[in-house]
Amino acid sequence: MIDSDQTTSESTLIAKNNVQVSSLKPQAPSLAAATLAVFRKDLRIELRSRYALNALLLFAVSTVVAISLGLGPIAPRDNRDLKLIQAALMWVALLFAAFTGLARAFVQEEDTRTATALRLAAPPLAVYLGKLLFNLLLLLVLDAVIAALFIAMLRVGVGAPLMFAAVLAVGSCALVAATTLIAAIIARASAKGALFAVLSFPLLIPPLVVAIRGTAFALEGESWAVGAAPIQVLLAYTLALFVASLFLFKSVWEA
């Protein structure tokens, strides 16, 4: 199967050339700098194409309008569980909007086949962290839009605004910690869109339930003594999945 055409001895080849190879491994880039580079690159591309942002925002608006129309012009104010229902609706809207946009960061690299160039050049952890930050930013923007729409269109009253913002932010961290690794996994499979939701959903049930409870507390204007518990659970969940992702990402990203 294999034959060498030329049988020139190696010594003459080396004598022919005056080769100087720098044998030093260059200093590895600092993780923070490389992470920031990946984040900036993704942000720049997103701002130019606005693919994920448009999809997320359109989805958010349509969901809120659908819920708003479904509930009619007058919200059921006499319902005891109103706050819980509103919190649940809000997180369902957030979740499904997130499903449409959060896989983008990795799927695009595979679809446009730029993943190879990135794989050869960037440290794997920098890729993961950069995309994690990008997804987090995306989701925080989505949080703000959905919260504003809910308050404006569904007349959701927020009892404890600060706690509300905190639960949304921490809940988004949990969502991003769970879905970023899954996005990297499904980017390398076929039927990516459907698979992303299928793989993410079972892992999102615990944080989703806690975030809904926490948001309901915030809407009702409970004290921090009550509201701190869900936030702590969400933080613990985020931390656990983040650390697991750091260990597992290299296996996902390798060719």
Binding site: P29, A34, A37, V38, A121
Partner: peptide
């Protein structure tokens, strides 16, 4: 989506150059 220089600058950055 990036320019030639932006592409090269990005890859230089992630390589620590």
């Amino acid at each position: 989506e990036l320019t030639a220089v932006e592409n090269l600058r990005f890859f230089a950055d992630v390589r620590g150059l």
